[in-house]
Nucleic acid binder design. Structure first.
Lengths: 148, 148
DNA sequence: TTGTCTGCAAAGGATTTGCACATGA
DNA sequence: TCATGTGCAAATCCTTTGCAGACAA
């Protein structure tokens, strides 16, 4: 079974778990989400889903994403500029690098940084419930001054 | 000269620098910003400014903040939930801890974390232009189970 | 069957903008 | 003076919601 198929199965279960119906629009969206390896926004998910299910609407995209997010199988990110972007939650926790020029998003994680965050919060009398860390970057060598 | 006064002076210069007029509405807003040691949103800044300058409007708050932000003397943050929150940019770079229960925002900074971020980005072929790091926290001991 | 979904369009919240009048330099 | 700023209301952008017909269980 492919990774995409596993994701789809997991999300389908999440829908049943949430007690909502598994409609053909939702099935189509799950397929799109399962295959996406980027971080599409709602409009992009609509565009992709419409290829298979032309009747799909933006409202249904948002409604379904909300259910999946509540079940913890989809994550919603609000990067700088533009609307929310989504990804399936199968992989382990990670943070993001956003390419300022292309808008592409890459994942990374650092146990060391998380450890430091926990320590810093503890020193201030706090416990970290969750965090957000995004590095807005440009490709090395594309900087001002040298490039053409 | 008080710290607040220094901030106000700096922001006034920034307005002149930007080539815009220093109106009484803007002066009132600068005073509010200079004295704020929290991270108020636009509505809150309007509320505070109106005490001194009752005619102040939300549009002018936003317009002035945009100028100050462009000049680099005010920073705009978009924490989870709710609109943007602002702070004067006098202090050196720092990141934020958001108290999930009270909404209060605290500052911290960690050279070690920044160092690690730079290294991680470099390994992926990127240079960090800027970053966003927020720790959403609860007070230690206020966790579920024990507290009342 | 029948309670839930759906698409559509209208509503919402935050922020920006057009306009005619007011005002700082 | 007169270009720029102001308040107001309307417009935007992204997301959510109400409604009447469609459909999964």
């Amino acid at each position: 079974m492919s990774l995409a198929q596993e994701k789809i199965t997991k999300m389908t279960k999440a829908l049943r778990q949430a007690g909502v119906r598994v409609t053909k629009q939702r099935i189509a969206l799950l397929a799109v989400l399962g295959e996406a390896d980027d971080h599409p926004d709602a409009e992009e998910l609509l565009r992709r889903t419409k290829r298979v299910e032309p009747g799909m609407s933006l409202a249904t995209v948002y409604r379904t994403l909300s259910v999946l997010e509540a079940e913890g199988v989809v994550h919603r990110h609000s990067f700088e500029g533009g609307g929310a972007r989504f990804e399936t939650a199968d992989q382990s926790h990670h943070d993001h690098i956003v390419d300022l020029d292309s808008g592409e998003v890459f994942e990374f994680n650092s146990a060391k940084i998380e450890q430091l965050q926990t320590e810093i919060a503890r020193e201030m009398g706090y416990e970290v419930i969750h965090h957000r860390m995004e590095l807005y970057c440009r490709k090395l060598g594309s900087g001002s001054g040298k490039g053409d």
